[in-house]
Design a protein around this nucleic acid. Structure first.
Lengths: 208, 208
DNA sequence: GACAACATACCAACCAGTCGGTACCATACG
DNA sequence: CGTATGGTACCGACTGGTTGGTATGTTGTC
């Protein structure tokens, strides 16, 4: 029973994106060869260049896909059910801590690893990674903005630069992932994010 | 016997380390070729492999050198003259802000860029980068410890996990450098470090 | 002349990307 | 009905260029 679009056809492209993402996160964009990605995906080079005009084009799609994955991760997280916006902000950080505390989860952000390598050499990938950061920060900023407009905050006259705090959030995640890569100590991520949480809790007038 | 006067010999080796450091910071360890380093240093490959057994060995020396450079940078900074230990901590962060606000200064840490790339593939370089972080954090922790033992803090019964705060400090630096590489916005570094400063000022019982 | 400090020429391995060919399937036509 | 046509998915040998590293030669100094 052959379908109109065979399973493998749609699968090959997706498999290349998935294995590419995995390998880029692990060993970086430059050090990962097209052959390695093909082997991991169980296809040949012919298939690769049938679906993507270049290695760069695959990485671009991996980054777009990564952006959506991260958005979906937060969208489906349990903390979304929390009503109080300040508690929701803090719970979102706990959620990140929880995610990275899972030993199965790769401690690496595709956008972070990629941009570190290609910032000076590949503007296409740099901007694709930047788009990941911009979207992620915009999401976290919306959480912060909600918290700022809550009664608890407005009654205290709290006004925060939520954009720069969202950047701090992303920077803390990226920085702690980088430190983990050097030390392999899972506590680094938890501790750094916990400090961030305490800082935000203080600004929002809440005890962590 | 003792080393001889390092006329041109010491120069070539030093030039390779300097140009290697510069190129590794700019384009990463993997993407930088030995030939590029040689061209930048104005020598040939023969000279390179006369002084270093491998590209990895050069990177290792670059990292060791980087560690010393960073230590020297702080040792000779003006904030060392500050007596009050809490003010000294905060001034050290202002110093970092000032350093990175100089457009001439490359917004890149050799240890950070290297470990991001080779964390999974090269344990030698990973540990060399880790040594940079450990030393840097130890230095900042010593500043924090001094501040904690000050009268102002002890009278308030403040006890801080200075080790994890030093890790937060390094993570914030690395994270904001990474975000800069994506956005090219100098404000990111300043703002993230300013948030860190405010957080520490709060913990140390001082207004930023 | 011994040895350090280079230069030059070279190599095998690997790289991203190409290209001619194959398998398959849907539709069209006689 | 058989088969011609055309498009998509994929294969794998191949290419030109680059890589880290080597083998050997040259030069200056003690």
């Amino acid at each position: 029973m052959a379908k109109k679009v065979p399973d493998k056809a749609g699968n090959t492209r997706g498999e290349l994106v998935q294995q590419g993402t995995d390998l880029f996160r692990r060993t970086g964009y430059v050090a990962t060869s097209v052959d390695e990605i093909c082997t991991a995906a169980g296809v040949t080079k012919g298939a690769f260049f049938h679906h993507f005009p270049s290695k760069e084009a695959l990485a671009e799609e991996c980054l777009r896909n990564w952006q959506q994955q991260m958005a979906a991760l937060h969208r489906s997280a349990a903390y979304q059910a929390i009503d109080d916006p300040t508690e929701k902000v803090l719970a979102s950080i706990d959620f990140m801590i929880e995610v990275f505390s899972n030993p199965e989860v790769q401690k690496s952000c595709l956008a972070g690893t990629t941009v570190q390598e290609v910032s000076e050499t590949n503007p296409v990938l740099r901007e694709a990674a930047q788009a990941c950061f911009v979207q992620g920060e915009a999401y976290f900023q919306s959480l912060l903005d909600d918290a700022c407009q809550s009664d608890a905050c407005r009654s205290r006259g709290v006004t925060l630069d939520t954009a720069s705090l969202a950047s701090l959030w992303m920077g803390t995640i990226q920085g702690s992932l980088l430190l983990w890569k050097a030390s392999r100590d899972p506590a680094v991520i938890r501790e750094n994010l916990t400090h961030l949480k305490k800082y935000l809790a203080g600004l929002l007038g809440q005890k962590a």
